[in-house]
Design a protein around this nucleic acid. Structure first.
Lengths: 230, 230
DNA sequence: AGAATATTTTAGGACCTCCTAAATTTCTTC
DNA sequence: GAAGAAATTTAGGAGGTCCTAAAATATTCT
């Protein structure tokens, strides 16, 4: 690894997940972390212990997990790598924007700081990645515009799904089936009045998708700058 | 991993090491593999069992290890990634040639075939890497010009050290201390007559290095094309 | 050949990350 | 507030990779 303090690749993934979940305001629940990473909750408990021992998170039994300053720094470092790599793949190597994520997911753990910096420089130090997400600086500063839910988004606006703040498996599965996963970017096409259904265009899908107010209230989003052309 | 048949990153390193050692002609000895990877010989025995179970190598107890066709294919795939990545880092990102190796060493296990191909295309499908080593094709074909020892190299010629064909720890340590490690590129500066000392310039070092004929006979090298300018 | 030496393998551990099943604790609901 | 449901943790295991120390096998030297 090229990590300062022996943070393994899986640990980096946990920190990123906790960072994202924590942006919703509350401490990250074990179950949420497990769902986000696609692993069993019991496995998360074990990793939480190790991360806490390393001083990267603070944890109260049965309560939840928060990043410490060190953990936050490590998370932002990984997020920077991820987003710089995504940007570089798209702009320098012609990757289709919807395929940069999985490649970056692996490279972010292997790339040195120097490589990431060289990539950033090569494409003009972008501030946002191909999905419109803000890129943390080398120093760990990011735009952390507060999160909203889909209910706060006006028709015509673009936003990115940050998380689905519900633990009902049926809801999660349904929402995922619609393509509304964290990280996905959507445009609100239409909003019926009186809490009526919301019509969304999802990045990868061709058909617009309709959801009710209950679902919309549970989908946390962040505003997204219009996607860059080049 | 992005490996066809669940070959882990450490396993890829073993296969590369065995490939290199086998180029000397004989089956790879457990000790040689251990030395090359910088790990204990006992650890190698364990990995050899797993690789043999996967059909990547053939192994006769107490004898040595050879790649099977599948193992050779996997090794060449990793070597291609490594050399393409090295080339890309040097040519597209301005990496100093002497620093591409360690970065590539990590990336080669994380990069997808698509990424490697895109990199190769972006820099014009090079045939040799920044150190002059031939790059295997996508199909697994490489230039395998037979190996020589340093004794076969004329003054003024450039070559890369492939292995040090001796098991004497003192010799290995001494040779390594001079910077004459496998993978390192050297230029023969001067050859004294009558089997006299050979003067070498090692890539990374500034001072030329002198070795006698005994040592030279034991250092296996391969010819290297002159380094590319761009 | 037999002894000394070198190489390789086995035995037994450690750590990491993940799993399932069975506690335990907390939250919800009547 | 107590029962039932949900979330979390603990227990016990598995696979991978590495280690050291000890045993097994090969090679070398006298």
């Amino acid at each position: 690894m090229s990590d300062p303090a022996g943070i393994t690749a899986p640990a980096e993934d946990y920190l990123k997940a906790i960072y994202d979940i924590e942006r919703g305001g509350e401490a990250a629940a074990t179950n949420d972390i497990a769902a986000r990473l696609g692993i069993a909750a019991a496995s998360v408990s074990g990793m939480i212990r190790r991360l806490a021992e390393q001083g990267l998170i603070s944890h109260e039994r049965y309560k939840g997990t928060r990043l410490t300053a060190a953990g936050r720094k490590a998370a932002l470092r990984t997020i920077r790598r991820h987003r710089v790599i995504e940007s570089y793949l798209a702009r320098a190597l012609g990757y289709p924007w919807d395929r940069v994520h999985e490649e970056a997911e692996r490279l972010e753990h292997a790339a040195s700081d120097e490589l990431v910096d060289r990539m950033a420089r090569a494409i003009g130090e972008p501030h946002i990645d191909p999905h419109g997400a803000p890129i943390p600086t080398r120093e760990g500063l990011v735009d952390e515009t507060p999160l909203r839910t889909l209910l706060d988004v006006h028709a015509g606006q673009r936003c990115r799904i940050v998380s689905v703040a519900d633990e009902d498996g049926d809801i999660l599965r349904y929402v995922a089936k619609l393509g509304l996963r964290p990280g996905v970017e959507v445009v609100v096409a239409e909003r019926a009045p009186f809490d009526g259904p919301i019509s969304l265009r999802v990045a990868a899908e061709s058909e617009p998708v309709q959801i009710g107010a209950t679902l919309a209230a549970v989908i946390r989003v962040e505003p997204v700058a219009e996607r860059l052309a080049r």
